[in-house]
């Protein structure tokens, strides 16, 4: 399956007088990793929620190939091969890891209420085939040992990996990662970055990544779009963006302008990552 281009054009989202996104445009070339960064409240998560159909756009368009995403409900967007993870984890805690991953297979499977209820052979066959596929993905992400355990019992870092694995189970052409390393410790971060890097090398997909961690963005992203107060400041390679005066101002305030060396370097900028969203 080929990976089309994702084009965001003039995207505006308003909630009752508040403009969360204001005329934002950027393009994600096929099979690249595009990072969306910005300070808290810049509109990154809003942007994601429009891409995955959770929020409606007030104006503007988002096209993925021929499909206009702003007109589709979330499940139709998913069926185009758009998968996402959530900043604050959205797993079913009572279900096992395996069952959570199987849900990622939903769009690629058929079994309905009647076939499942009647225990038809086709339903069992599909269930077994999906279990194999799930194990494959779990191995890839390194969570095989956790498959039989309820997700609620797993540590936070592992649950973040489960979310990634669940999204990969969709066999996405576009993967939306909302702060995949937020709240992780150093070791977990490194492992996650390594996994994401491997995913983009091996799999046929584009990735859009929302992140605060500039070091991670610098290492993984082909292109970076910077948002501030709902507006796009700039788009460019990580190095370009890091030197951009507007970006420096947005991150460090006006005084930093005189000292370009103090560009938003990385992890040691105060951890902005956690709990931005309600």
């Amino acid at each position: 399956m080929s990976v089309p281009e994702l084009a965001v054009r003039g995207l505006t989202v308003r909630f009752a007088g508040i403009t969360a996104l204001d005329d934002v445009s950027f393009t994600v070339a096929p099979k690249t990793l595009h990072a969306v960064i910005g300070p808290n409240g810049a509109g990154k998560s809003t942007c994601f929620n429009v891409l995955s159909g959770v929020y409606r756009a007030t104006e503007g368009s988002v096209t993925f190939g021929d499909a206009e995403l702003t007109k589709l409900p979330p499940h139709k967007i998913a069926s185009l091969g758009v998968a996402r993870t959530f900043q604050n984890l959205a797993l079913s805690d009572y279900l096992t890891t395996a069952a959570n991953l199987q849900l990622g297979r939903h769009r690629l499977t058929r079994t309905g209420f009647v076939t499942a209820g009647l225990h038809l052979p086709s339903a069992r066959r599909e269930e077994r085939a999906q279990a194999d596929k799930v194990r494959e993905v779990a191995e890839y992400v390194g969570i095989t040992e956790h498959l039989p355990l309820p997700v609620g019992l797993l540590p936070y870092g592992v649950r973040k990996r489960v979310e990634l694995a669940r999204a990969l189970c969709l066999e996405p052409r576009l993967l939306l990662l909302d702060e995949p390393v937020a709240g992780m410790n150093g070791g977990e971060r490194r492992a996650m970055v390594e996994t994401i890097g491997r995913v983009r090398e091996v799999m046929d997909l584009s990735i859009v990544l929302v992140e605060h961690d500039m070091a991670l963005v610098g290492r993984l992203a082909d292109e970076v779009t910077v948002l501030d107060f709902g507006r796009r400041l700039t788009t460019g390679t990580p190095a370009e963006v890091r030197r951009h005066p507007d970006v420096i101002r947005a991150y460090l305030g006006k005084s930093a302008e005189e000292d370009p060396a103090a560009a938003p370097r990385t992890n040691d900028t105060p951890a902005q990552g956690q709990g931005e969203n309600p």
Partner: peptide, 19 residues
């Protein structure tokens, strides 16, 4: 499959849609 979908709708409606 349908049971898991129902559980996920219960636990996290937005995630269910996104999946």
């Amino acid at each position: 499959r349908p049971g898991r979908a129902l559980n996920t709708i219960r636990d996290h409606e937005i995630a269910a849609g996104a999946l």
